[in-house]
Design a protein around this nucleic acid. Structure first.
Length: 268
DNA sequence: TTCCAGGCGTATC
DNA sequence: GATACGCATGGA
């Protein structure tokens, strides 16, 4: 499916069905986006973006002050524009619950986030709520002048992280920073190896259990077979899938999970 | 005031 | 291997 976009002055105009900014950027997968008039602003690594709805009827979006090269090399990947979500949703529609979830919020896309940032984000997410997760990450970026690299974080102390008010999670961040910066956990390598091995490798980090490992795999490494189960997904599984989640969707279970998560929280 | 939040480490059985 | 409890913080 060729990408449908054009250059407009300093901006890029994209035509993209199956894409809703709020549903995608505020559904608990990424925590560095904030709503502005007509759209959203946020970061991928150090790249800043303002993206607005250009024409909702026509599925048009405006990427502000973005060169064609930056659009193609950074944002097209970040927003997963190569994936045909229409086709995915069609596939999911053979299941009644998933059909409902996709009908409720069919504009969700699975972002291809930075692996290190996603790992940190979901370490912070544990036993926490979304507004506070955002607050902690915002304070972290403020403290370090952008999202800190693993190396930078590894060279800091618990005292330095105190202003984050991240509670017991601060020590987890430091352990992750040490193991990633030393190469003991090689995040990029985890894209290639069998998912079960990648899971076990991530769990070497203190504070990474089953849930955080799945989130790091899905949101940071785009391992679509990862299926994070939190309290909300537990409710979905208990209520709608008492015999287990359908095996036929397992290879893209992470995307299905994203629709279901949003649906159970906001959709009924 | 008490409960809960995209859990995990530890102790105990 | 299963289950119970504490953990930092702050909003509801």
């Amino acid at each position: 499916m060729p990408m449908d976009y054009k250059v407009s002055g300093n901006d890029i105009i994209l035509r993209q069905p199956d894409f809703d900014l709020g549903q995608t950027l505020d559904c608990g997968q990424a925590f560095r986006w904030e709503e502005i008039s007509g759209g959203w602003q946020g970061f991928y690594k150090d790249s800043f973006l303002i993206i607005t709805d250009e024409d909702k009827e026509e599925n048009l979006f405006r990427f502000h002050d973005v060169s064609e090269e930056e659009f193609l090399t950074v944002w097209a990947s970040y927003f997963d524009l190569d994936e045909d979500y229409g086709k995915l949703k069609k596939r999911f529609s053979s299941d009644g619950t998933l059909k409902e979830a996709c009908a409720f919020a069919g504009g969700i896309r699975l972002l291809r986030q930075d692996s290190w940032e996603a790992l940190c984000s979901f370490l912070i997410s544990q036993n926490n709520n979304i507004p506070r997760i955002k607050g902690i990450i915002k304070r972290m970026c403020g403290l370090f002048g952008g999202f800190p690299t693993a190396e930078r974080l590894a060279s800091s102390s618990l005292d330095e992280l105190a202003p984050l008010r991240s509670g017991f999670r601060a020590k987890y961040l430091l352990d992750a920073a040490r193991k990633v910066s030393s190469g003991e956990v090689d995040l990029e390598e985890l894209r290639k190896i069998p998912v079960e091995e990648a899971r076990e490798c991530l769990k070497k980090i203190t504070g990474v259990g089953p849930k955080v490992a799945e989130c790091a795999l899905l949101y940071g490494l785009h391992r679509l077979e990862a299926f994070p189960v939190d309290v909300w997904i537990k409710r979905v599984l208990a209520e709608y899938y008492p015999d287990g989640f359908p095996e036929e969707f397992r290879e893209v279970g992470g995307i299905a999970q994203q629709y279901l998560f949003h649906y159970i929280r906001k959709g009924r």
